[in-house]
């Protein structure tokens, strides 16, 4: 797998979440995603960026335009040094929430992408990587 382009963005405020959405949209369009797939990816990015801001106390996202010789794709890694998630399995079920939301942020964005990886350790932080092929 080859990384063709990479960029890191800070996620600290609500405006940053908007910026993550817009950057994701521009990258997805450049890679050549269909409109529906662009929308799915931007929506997933919005959910995860908001989680990073709200529950992780802010963090970063790394966007990577990748290529594995037959397909092009976009990989995004959301990272924070917040309180972390104690029970990942429960956090991934529909309707589970600690923030008063609908509890669709994690489980929903998982359905919008091709690959979803989560690492978290209480007290150390959370790292979520998503990938969608064109």
């Amino acid at each position: 797998m080859v990384v063709l382009k990479a960029e890191s963005l800070t996620i600290a405020t609500q405006e940053d979440v908007v910026r993550v959405r817009q950057t994701t949209r521009a990258w997805a369009a450049e890679i050549g995603f269909s409109l529906v797939n662009q929308t799915k990816l931007v929506t997933a990015a919005s959910e995860l960026a908001r989680n990073t801001m709200l529950y992780g106390g802010g963090g970063t996202v790394l966007l990577e335009s990748i290529n594995d010789s037959i397909r092009a794709g976009l990989r995004m890694t959301f990272e924070d040094e917040g309180p972390g998630i104690a029970d990942i399995e429960t956090a991934l079920t529909d309707g589970y929430t600690t923030g008063g939301g609908l509890g669709l942020g994690l489980s929903g964005s998982k359905r919008l992408v091709d690959e979803f990886n989560i690492w978290s350790e209480p007290g150390r932080g959370t790292r979520i990587t998503i990938l969608r092929w064109r």
Partner: peptide, 13 residues
């Protein structure tokens, strides 16, 4: 928009 509707359904909303 159609793309938004498809995504919302997939999201579970």
């Amino acid at each position: 928009r159609p793309a938004v509707a498809i995504t919302l359904v997939e999201l579970g909303l």
